[in-house]
Simulated scan of single mutants.
Amino acid sequence: MPQNNQFFVFEGIDGSGKTTVSRLVSEALLKKSFPNLWHREPTDSVYGKKIREFLEGKIKLNKEEQIDIFIKDREVSVNEVILPTLKNGKSIVQDRYYFSTAAYQGRDEEHAADILYKNEDKGFPEPNRIYFLDLSPEEAHERRIARSGAKEVFDVDSEQTRIYQNYLAILPESTIFVDATAELEEVVAFCVEDILKSLEG
């Protein structure tokens, strides 16, 4: 993959701010004339819509069904968005990738690792950089209460603790841990600077 178009992924538990941060990072890069596309998973495909129904508690899916539908949605994401965008010379700044599926759907650390391998076996492209917005489950709980909104199936403290521990177990050593308790502007500036270093080689 050429250095001027790379694949950057933002991960974190609910409330860590990864959607906001990744969007702002994408916008900042555009202002600095680095072409990129902000992308998120789940997508708006039929599979992505079903995932959202599950997350909102409208339908029930067991663990294996969850893993299956996330992988099907990711195949759409990779084939219709990620690979074509990279091929066209643009970078991708993405909110969630297969590390999320492993962390959220994994019953424990070992199961999370199995899910990760299942995604890697599909040949999905590896990101150039992974940014983990590090926020403890306790701090994330406070943020989720503050932002209110509809509760989702994983919006339970014990679930967020499990997810956080799974993340720590499966994220690659090269993952960049970002202090998500810092000011938003600082977090964005740090990530933008790091991405620019990577893009400029």
Rank of each mutant, 00 (worst) to 15 (best):
I130V: 15
D95I: 15
R107G: 08
I115R: 05
N128Y: 06
A113L: 15
F132D: 09
E110D: 06
Y104L: 08
Q105W: 03
T101Q: 07
E120F: 14
L116I: 03
N128H: 12
G123V: 05
A112R: 09
F132Y: 14
H111Q: 11
N119G: 11
E109K: 15
D114S: 13
T101R: 04
N128P: 07
E126Y: 10
K118H: 14
R129Y: 13
A103S: 02
Q105M: 08
D108H: 13
N128L: 09
T101Y: 10
F99Y: 15
S100P: 04
L116P: 09
R129E: 10
Y117F: 05
Y131I: 12
L133H: 03
L133E: 03
G123D: 05
T101K: 11
Y117P: 00
I115Y: 09
D95C: 10
D95M: 08
N119M: 14
Y98R: 12
Y104D: 09
K122S: 02
D134H: 08
S100T: 14
G106I: 05
D134W: 01
A113T: 14
G106V: 06
L116D: 01
E109N: 12
A112M: 08
L116Q: 03
D121K: 15
N128S: 11
T101V: 05
E109W: 06
D121T: 12
N128K: 07
K122D: 04
N128C: 06
I115F: 00
I130P: 12
A113W: 15
G123F: 08
K122A: 00
T101D: 03
L116F: 01
